[in-house]
Design a binder for these strands. Structure first.
Length: 493
DNA sequence: AGGCAGCGCAC
DNA sequence: GTGCGC
DNA sequence: GCCT
């Protein structure tokens, strides 16, 4: 499905509809299946509206294209069934004004015809094609993901169309942007790289300086900019985006004007900033420890190795410093997943072994490997954890342990460690293995697939709906007194 | 002015 | 209790 | 940092 938030089709002329009702553009392949749809900004001009309609109908000759009032959607949701669209359809010849527009559009099209097809500046059409390409590309990638356990992922990979509808509507009505309501399919290339590059540097600097929440602000802003479908041209344009306030808008303006960010140059030229970054890149070293090392006079990794007293984790982090910084190609993650899967299945039939994290989000490379394990019979996951780790150690697959976290044996078990495939030139990789009871599988899968920001957005949405979401369950009727939960409520999932 | 999640582990 | 990573 |  196409889902496009308003904004990209904004026109300076008058809105097509006074009572600010969003329209959906629907491509219908037959009477029942709605294959492609997207929301159209309410401020879309009449002209563009009918240009799009016409363009779509010409391009997709086999399919019918129509503009449908969003009211139709509400009805479908209310009645929990497909409602005939006919009475909600906006027909091109439904009134005089609109017909004129259509004629005008046709006329212009005819005169343009033999000039250059590509020259037709039909934004929506172009966007449609881009979206289509993206979807096809995504589907191919998804299919090539040849793993056996993949088919049952369809339902959990994303939300259903209906859920998207609801979230989109909700998002529209509250004028908020929910990351969790955006399909990963709609990702476009980053047109504001010149800005986000610099902001990302600011982000890591603040992270390393222990300014967690300032960094969080940068993170949100960067994500919004990357998702923005066009190049930011002015400060006002930036300021209008959710998650971008005055301070960052000012920085964007400076980058736009001068191509540089004085604050960034100043900060990154300071010697301590670089040492801080050097140290926090060690697994187990955070901002506080990095700063401590700095005050102790250490400047290089060699200093740490010889002089500093390090925790067990930090020693491992240092040992594999260069290897952990390397991204892991998808196919290697796939091999690692398979390795663990084979080991697990040799212990117990029917175990579900699934790599999550960025791998499951379809990224080309990953920072680490998250593997989630459960058993559908609701009991066989018990006792697997320790035996599996032992086996993988025996196979010399696991080389170092960072944390072995064993809650009660029937609950979640989490392992953080290091692994290496038995192949020439294989690097040591960070791996997390989590065993969960089947009841918690859904939430665990959601949580460990992320992204972090997606999870934040989901939690926030849950809270807003009177629910609470964590890696184990989703609860309702949660009463809070400040941060303290008075009532954990009842479990939904 | 206060929230931006909340947990278990190492130390 | 704090720092850290998830 | 931003948002409510």
């Amino acid at each position: 499905a196409f889902v496009k938030h308003g904004g990209s089709l904004v026109d300076d002329t008058k809105p097509i509809d006074e009572h600010s009702m969003p329209y959906f553009l629907i491509v219908i392949y037959d009477e029942i299946t709605i294959q492609n749809w997207r929301t159209i900004d309410t401020t879309l001009s009449k002209k563009k509206f009918y240009q799009s309609l016409k363009a779509f109908n010409e391009r997709q000759s086999a399919n019918k294209v129509a503009f449908i009032q969003s009211l139709w959607l509400s009805e479908c949701l209310k009645q929990k069934k497909y409602v005939q669209i006919s009475s909600y359809e906006l027909k091109a010849d439904s009134d005089n004004n609109k017909q004129e527009d259509l004629k005008e559009c046709t006329k212009r099209k005819n005169s343009d015809e033999n000039v250059d097809n590509l020259k037709k500046p039909k934004i929506s059409e172009q966007e449609l094609m881009n979206d289509k390409k993206r979807i096809v590309k995504y589907q191919e990638e998804y299919k090539s993901d040849s793993d056996s356990s993949y088919c049952d992922d369809e339902s959990t990979m994303g939300l259903s169309n209906k859920d998207f509808f609801e979230l989109q509507l909700y998002s529209k009505s509250t004028n908020e942007s929910w990351t969790c309501a955006h399909s990963s399919k709609e990702q476009t290339e980053n047109l504001n790289e010149h800005i986000t590059d610099k902001l990302e540097k600011m982000l890591t600097i603040y992270e390393n300086k222990n300014e967690k929440y300032r960094a969080l602000g940068y993170q949100k802003a960067i994500l919004i900019l990357k998702r923005h479908p066009k190049q930011i041209q002015s400060k006002e344009e930036a300021l209008a985006l959710p998650g971008i306030g005055k301070r960052i808008a000012d920085k964007i303006w400076e980058i736009l004007q001068t191509g540089d960010l004085r604050k960034l140059d100043e900060m990154s030229s300071r010697e301590d900033t670089n040492s801080l970054k050097l140290f926090t890149d060690i697994h187990g070293v955070g901002p506080t420890t990095a700063h401590l090392f700095l005050t102790q006079g250490y400047r290089t990794l060699e200093d740490l190795k010889t002089k500093a007293n390090l925790t067990r984790q930090q020693k491992i982090g240092l040992k594999y410093y260069d290897e952990f910084k390397q991204r892991i190609p998808r196919d290697e993650v796939s091999k690692i997943e398979n390795k663990v899967k084979c080991a697990a299945l040799s212990l117990k039939h029917g175990l579900i072994v699934q790599a999550c994290g960025s791998y499951r989000r379809g990224q080309a490379t990953c920072g680490d490997v998250d593997i989630l394990i459960t058993h559908p019979d609701r009991k066989s996951h018990k006792g697997i954890f320790t035996r599996l780790l032992n086996l993988l150690h025996e196979q010399n697959f696991l080389t170092d342990d960072l944390v072995v976290q064993e809650e009660n044996c029937d609950n979640q078990c989490k392992y953080l460690g290091v692994c290496r495939l038995d192949e020439a030139n294989s690097l040591h990789r960070r791996i997390d293995i989590i065993v969960v009871p089947y009841d918690e599988y859904a939430c665990a899968l959601l949580y460990f697939t992320g992204s972090t920001h997606f999870n934040r957005s989901m939690r926030h949405l849950a809270r807003k709906l009177g629910l609470s979401l964590c890696e184990k369950s989703i609860n309702k009727n949660v009463r809070r007194k400040g941060v303290e939960k008075v009532n954990t409520g009842e479990r939904l999932v």
